[in-house]
């Protein structure tokens, strides 16, 4: 039972991660990219909890999960601030509007 449960969890975690990654690679709207990053983070979190359960170190895994949650909040806050600035500066939320560093 345990093996199937682990495989299911890890498979779901990978699927979440892949979904998020797809959004980050393929979407042009900053909002969608941020959502993609968040979804990737959820996949990683799930993988941590599963690994902690499998290795019987749930405490350690939870410590990492809390850390991830805190970092995600910070990332979201900063990303939203950047988006507001970008909207003010260019009038759109398209990452193509942020190419001024292109060589």
């Amino acid at each position: 039972m345990a093996d199937g449960f682990l495989a299911l969890n890890l498979g779901f975690a990978m699927a979440l991660f892949a979904l998020g990654l797809f959004a980050v690679v393929a979407k042009e709207s900053l909002i969608r990219i941020l959502l993609g990053i968040e979804v990737m983070g959820k996949g990683v979190t799930l993988a941590f909890v599963t690994a902690g359960y499998a290795l019987d170190q749930l405490g350690t895994a939870q410590a990492f999960v809390f850390t991830i949650i805190v970092i995600e909040v910070v990332v979201t806050a900063i990303a939203l601030a950047i988006m507001i600035r970008l909207q003010h500066a260019t009038g759109r939320l398209d990452i193509r509007a942020m190419r001024r560093l292109a060589g």
């Binding site: 990654l21 980050v24 690679v25 393929a26 979407k27 042009e28 990219i33 990452i95 193509r96 942020m98 190419r99 001024r100 560093l101 292109a102 060589g103």
Partner: peptide
């Protein structure tokens, strides 16, 4: 000289990391 390899496109950069 290496600057020309920078597209500034987020999608392409992330794909490169991947």
């Amino acid at each position: 000289r290496l600057r020309s390899t920078q597209t500034g496109d987020l999608n392409i950069n992330v794909a490169g990391v991947l």
